[in-house]
Amino acid sequence: MNTLENILLNAKKSILSQSESIAKLNDYLTPDFAKSVELIYQSKGRLIITGIGKSAIIAQKIVATLNSTGTPSLFLHAAEAIHGDLGMIQKEDVVLCISKSGNSPEIKVLAPIIRNFGNPLIGMTANETSFLATNSDYVLHAYIDDEACPNGLAPTNSTTAQLVLGDAIAICLMKLRNFTPDDFAKYHPGGALGKKLLLRVKDMLDTTHAPQVNPDASIKKVIMEISEKRLGVTAVVAHNKVIGIITDGDIRRMLNDRDQFTDLVAQDIMTKNPKHISSQLHVSEALDILENNKITQLVVIDNEEYKGILHLHDILKEGIV
């Protein structure tokens, strides 16, 4: 076996090992998990998540996920906690402590202090008989058979298990809160994700250069309007109401079918009842219509009044796709 084949084999073994460990987590879910989620949901305070080593890194990711999905959370490093940062924990907070072994020195110091504060303590550990487990109000069993690491030392399967349990908590809380895409958008206003969730059609519509022709416009006028506005389409408008559209594809098909077109006008070659959308809707909804109908332009209409054309290229330029 050559080096490249050996690398791929080891990668597949690692992925398979971690996927098998995750699948087994279902067998270790107990009523404590449901009670922990309910406790967090009912809490008037925040969820403080703490850990040491690699578990601390996982804790930070879980905090980020929870904050973005409606559960106020803070990360507290276990080592820093016992050296002055315990003031972060307020009276009504719930504490989630993550530790594979559940027996690290920092955890042994921290767990009793939290209990003395009177804060509920949830322990996430692979060891049900550990110090953390026996000193927690609820235990989330993140058990694994072994690590994917060939030496059985580097946290791999264990941290993946912790991460998956944290995501499961977040998903359950989202369900309890009826957390919607609009709620999600409030916490993600920036970047492509924020644009996809918040940007509306009206925010990117050029109403001053909306291509349009009258129903009796000549084909030459139609071609000039499509070329001038550079959207590959023009609306056919009568009394400010869209009665059809003509695309550059319609023009090409007409030229293929006819040698003469001087006797034709816009309404002779237009497509009636074009796909349209309100300017008040999200751009993501417009994108769905475009993709589902395999088209690149969408007519924008508000209260039966023509507003303009939204082009797929405009959406692409915003980085939403």
Rank of each mutant, 00 (worst) to 15 (best):
T3S: 05
L4H: 11
E5F: 11
E5N: 07
L8C: 09
L8S: 11
A11K: 10
S17F: 02
S19W: 07
S21E: 09
A23R: 03
K24A: 07
L25E: 02
N26V: 01
D27I: 02
D27P: 01
T30Q: 00
T30W: 03
D32Q: 02
D32E: 02
K35E: 12
S36N: 06
V37A: 06
I40M: 10
S43E: 08
K44E: 15
R46S: 11
I49H: 04
I49N: 03
G51N: 02
A56K: 05
I62N: 01
T65R: 06
T65N: 04
S68K: 04
P72L: 08
P72V: 06
L74K: 09
L76Q: 01
A78K: 00
A78Q: 00
E80A: 00
E80F: 00
A81S: 01
H83A: 00
D85Q: 01
M88E: 00
I89R: 03
Q90G: 05
D93K: 03
V95G: 01
L96M: 05
I98Q: 03
I98F: 01
K100M: 08
S101Q: 01
K108P: 00
L110V: 00
A111C: 00
F117C: 06
N119D: 08
P120S: 08
P120F: 04
M124V: 02
T125L: 04
T129Q: 14
A133M: 03
Y143R: 10
A148I: 04
C149M: 12
T156A: 08
S158W: 13
S158A: 14
T159R: 07
A170L: 10
K175H: 14
K175P: 11
N178P: 08
T180P: 10
D182W: 12
D182Q: 15
G190E: 14
K202P: 13
P211D: 04
P215T: 06
S227C: 09
K229C: 13
K229L: 10
R230G: 07
L231E: 13
T234A: 09
V242R: 12
I243V: 15
I245N: 03
T247K: 09
G249K: 04
N256A: 13
D257I: 05
D259E: 15
D263A: 11
P274H: 12
I277Q: 09
I277A: 05
L281K: 15
L281Q: 14
V283T: 11
E285A: 13
A286P: 01
D288Y: 05
I289L: 11
E291S: 04
E291G: 05
E291D: 07
N292G: 04
K294A: 09
Q297H: 08
V300Q: 15
N303H: 11
Y306H: 12
K307R: 15
L310S: 07
L312I: 13
